[in-house]
Design a protein around this nucleic acid. Structure first.
Length: 815
RNA sequence: GGGCGCGUGGUGGAAUUGGUAGACACGUACGCUUCAGGAGCGUAUGCCGCAAGGCAUGGAGGUUCAAGUCCUCUCGCGCCCACCA
């Protein structure tokens, strides 16, 4: 017999499967149920890493399993092909971003094919292809026409020396990554999508999804819905009021000063009354220089300036309190102004300490409240305790006039009602800024006309093609390099035919990826982004596997996108993904994140050349539970163990006899049962362990061809090449991958006997092998006859016994 | 600071969801084999102990006949977010 030679086997069958079109997904699903398995498509970075293998080759097991179980499986792949790195490469290496991207994709396609994954390449999506982005533009225009897209002044990172907008990742410690200049904040008109309109539904609909709670919680926290209240603080001698937002209306009596964001509009209006105007202006200028990153970074020292000459009035206490500006208050959150309660807010406390402001506690913790209110409200305190402290600072109100003695959560609504506030919901979530001042992205299909305003490009003029340019340097006025292509920019207004200019911004790449899962259902449709019929056939996605880092970005954005399409009547489902899972992370052999600088990078191509794709696939499936977000170090010894397993499966051919021994048969059916249960539960690691257990047994006995074939079929999703080769060696005509999933024999998969643990006073003293449906009385009798049990029971009285059928018998005896 | 999660042998991980802790694999040791290889096969392998037995799931308590699993406190680690009021 020849040796297991993966180098000969793997390319051979990959070519064969391709030629036979084995992985083409038919839309005709007569009598079959559909299964849509989605994996996050890669960015064309240029080289496949182990993480890609983990992301694509392991779910392939599930795809193949469902196919063998008679389901019609959609398992597509493509490229998220627009983005900043291509543009950076263009500037750095004087290479066309398109060339860079398409070359990378060519190379990566070859690498992905080497996995032997059953992707249907005929449905490949490439987001920078005009056939795709035409519909990205079209969908955006539907949103625009329905009031979901708008332009707004938004701060961006600006490098004064490179004269360009910087992405957050290009800002290092507040300096430009490339030239080191200090980064400034600068406002630019940017396109936004109104994801905040959907905030409630994005939170509420999570309840309907069968996702891991962890992922749902992340999204809930990210959206950050909080029910708070607004209060108006009047300013002495002025008719304007300062409206603050708070989630802690219960602490209103403890508000000892107000803080406005430096950008707050009222400041300018108060100019005439302020005695320290110069100081204020200096502070405003200073804080504008600080980037959002700096302002939102951990800084112990709170800075700010008092608005001298004006005072506000706390509507609850009617006392005059000072007003400050400070950059720890953000203009775009809430109302851009806060009431500061130093006694019950850490940030306010810091600030109050540095400015020597009064700190007035208005909530007493439960225990001190007991002393403050002896007897009277004891029952109330108990009821709070029972209902549980939902928040760390919960307690009983003090120093709060007639609200004294109320539990703080209860006091919220009462104070809002009686002091004259307004209940208000707010969200941490902000609208989604979708424009980028970049070349390598989807052109935003809007034309700016002096007369008509922002005019959408007509449907028949889509796609707005991204023009080829030679000079990728930014325009210098903050606009993308597109602004320099005058013949492209200057157009006639579609409405009035007058002089107009194209929008030169391009879309954030998250826009491209917000609907790619729909394209897969009906790729290359020239008339619509996807036909309703085909979308309805496949959507919603049955399982979406991806990385945890996309939980609050891509996954949330695409949920929003789907809902927006739903509201426009364009799709049937309100949610795109029935089930979402986050996989873990493959680390270097040293347990650290793989990185070139650490020198712990595993190159999958090298390992595949050495051990084969089947080994790599199976090792990654074996390394740990796939649906949990742990970190798994790559172990060179560990993977050779998996290779050894496949070698043994190969050599098992030699042992094939005319009959299978009973024990071998049984252990095979036990294994198949286990694997059948584990694959849909994504527990590939224990499924593989079951195969190994079987193999250990099989090598002790003999195996007939029939059983060997059963093994190969069950193993086919894990090691598609090896099993195909062995299958054909057995003179089978068709591909093993068109075979049915093996059905285990229930009678064989279950043992006739069970081992029962005998516990005495909680400790296992003996185990008994008994027939499966042995009676409790018989087991007790046998147990009491065993010397090891007798030793612990002798001369004592059995006070209690608990029998768990098939598991154990627990005896409690007197001392 | 906030949120989420995780701590099980020398290592990666199992554990029917409250029921015999450590499956399977790696590593290690000893042995056997030999077209001497980065090969194959066998046996052993949680810790202490000659044994009987005892101790073990980060630590301390608790509930229970029974706890890795549930509760309380505590220590350590990881990830995400972060001046969000």
């Amino acid at each position: 017999m020849e040796k297991y030679d993966h180098k000969a086997i793997e390319p051979k069958w990959q070519k064969y499967w391709e030629k036979e079109g084995l992985h083409k997904t038919p839309d005709n699903t007569k009598g079959k149920s559909n299964f849509y398995l989605l994996v996050e498509f890669p960015y064309p970075s240029g080289n496949l890493h182990v993480g890609h293998w983990y992301a694509f080759s392991v779910p392939d097991i599930l795809a193949r399993f469902h196919r063998m179980n008679g389901r019609n499986v959609l398992y597509p792949i493509g490229f998220d092909a627009f983005g900043l790195p291509a543009e950076n490469a263009a500037i750095k290496n004087k290479i066309n971003p398109r060339t860079w991207t398409y070359d990378n994709m060519d190379y990566m396609r070859k690498q992905i094919r080497s996995m032997g994954a059953s992707f249907d390449w005929s449905r490949e999506v490439v987001t920078c292809d005009p056939d795709y982005y035409r519909w990205t533009q079209w969908q955006f225009l539907q949103f625009f026409k329905n009031g979901l897209a708008y332009r707004k002044d938004t701060p961006v990172n600006w490098c004064p020396s490179c004269k360009t907008v910087l992405a957050n990742e290009q800002v290092v410690d507040g300096h430009c990554e490339r030239c080191g200049s200090e980064v400034e904040q600068r406002n630019m008109l940017q396109w936004n999508l109104k994801i905040t309109n959907y905030a409630d539904r994005l939170v509420d609909d999570l309840d309907k999804l069968n996702w891991p709670e962890q992922i749902k919680d992340s999204q809930r926290n990210w959206i950050g819905r909080s029910i708070g209240a607004e209060f108006d603080f009047s300013v002495v001698g002025v008719k304007e009021k300062i409206t603050v937002f708070t989630t802690r209306a219960d602490t209103l009596f403890g508000a000892t000063y107000l803080v406005l964001a430096p950008e707050h509009g009222l400041i300018e209006q108060l100019k005439g009354r302020l005695s320290n105007w110069d100081e204020i202006v200096r502070y405003i200028v200073l804080s504008k220089k600080r980037t959002e990153i700096e302002r939102t970074a951990v800084t112990k020292d709170k800075t700010g300036v008092e608005l001298k000459g004006v005072k506000a009035i706390n509507p609850a206490t009617k006392l005059e309190i000072p007003i400050f500006i400070a950059d720890y208050v953000l203009a775009h959150y809430g109302t851009g102004a806060i009431m500061a309660v130093p006694a019950h807010d850490d940030r306010d406390l810091e600030f109050a300490k540095s400015f020597n402001l009064p700190i007035k506690p208005v909530i007493a913790q439960i225990d001190s409240a007991r002393e403050a209110f002896p007897g009277l409200i004891r029952s109330k305190i108990e009821s709070i305790k029972e209902s549980g402290f939902s928040h760390a600072g919960d307690g009983i109100l003090i120093n709060s006039g007639k609200f004294d003695g109320l539990p703080n959560q209860e006091a919220k609504a009462k104070i809002v009602a009686e002091v004259g506030g307004r209940e208000k919901k707010t969200y941490r979530l902000r609208d989604w800024v979708v424009s980028r001042q970049r070349y390598w992205g989807v052109p935003i299909p809007i034309i700016h006309c002096e007369k008509c305003g922002d005019v959408p490009v007509g449907d028949t003029d889509l796609p707005v093609l991204l023009p080829d340019v030679e000079d990728y340097l930014p325009a210098g006025d903050g606009r993308s390099p597109l602004a320099k292509v005058r013949e492209w920019v200057e157009v006639k207004c579609p409405t009035c035919k007058g002089k107009a200019e194209r929008e030169t911004d391009t879309f954030d790449t998250f826009v491209d990826s917000s609907w790619y899962y729909l394209w897969y259902t009906d790729p290359r449709n020239k008339k619509e982004f996807a036909s309703r019929k085909k979308m309805d056939l496949w959507m919603p996605v049955n399982l979406y596997s991806g990385g945890a880092e996309h939980t609050t970005m891509h996954v949330l954005y695409s949920r929003f996108w789907q809902k927006a399409l739903f509201d426009l009547g364009l799709v049937k489902d309100e949610e795109p993904y029935t089930r979402r899972m986050n996989r873990g992370l493959i680390m270097g052999p040293d347990g650290q994140k793989m990185s070139k600088s650490r020198g712990n990078v595993i190159d999958p191509d090298t390992v595949v050349a050495e051990l084969g794709a089947d080994t790599v696939r199976m090792y990654l499936a074996f390394i740990g539970p796939y649906h949990e977000t742990g970190t798994y170090p790559w172990s060179p010894e560990g993977i050779s163990g998996v290779r050894r397993f496949l070698d043994r499966v190969w050599r098992l051919q030699e042992r094939i006899g005319t009959t299978s021994t009973e024990a071998v048969k049984r252990s095979l059916h036990v294994a198949i049962k286990k694997v059948t249960e584990d694959i849909p539960a994504l527990k590939f690691n224990t499924a593989i362990a079951a195969f190994m257990t079987f193999l250990n047994e099989a090598e002790k006995g003999t195996l007939a061809t029939a059983e060997y074939k059963l093994l190969l079929r069950a193993l086919a999703p894990f090691a598609p090449h090896l099993t195909e080769e062995l299958w054909r060696t057995l003179e089978e005509k068709g591909s093993i991958h068109t075979e049915d999933w093996p059905v285990f024999d229930a009678a064989l998969s279950e043992s006739a006997t069970v081992r029962i643990g005998i516990q005495v006073n909680g400790k296992v003293r003996e185990t008994l092998e008994v027939v499966k449906d042995e009676s409790e009385a018989e087991i007790l009798k046998k147990a009491l006859a065993h010397p090891r049990v007798v030793k612990w029971v002798e001369g004592k009285e059995i006070i209690k016994k608990v029998y768990v059928p098939g598991r154990l018998l627990s005896l409690v005896v007197s001392e």
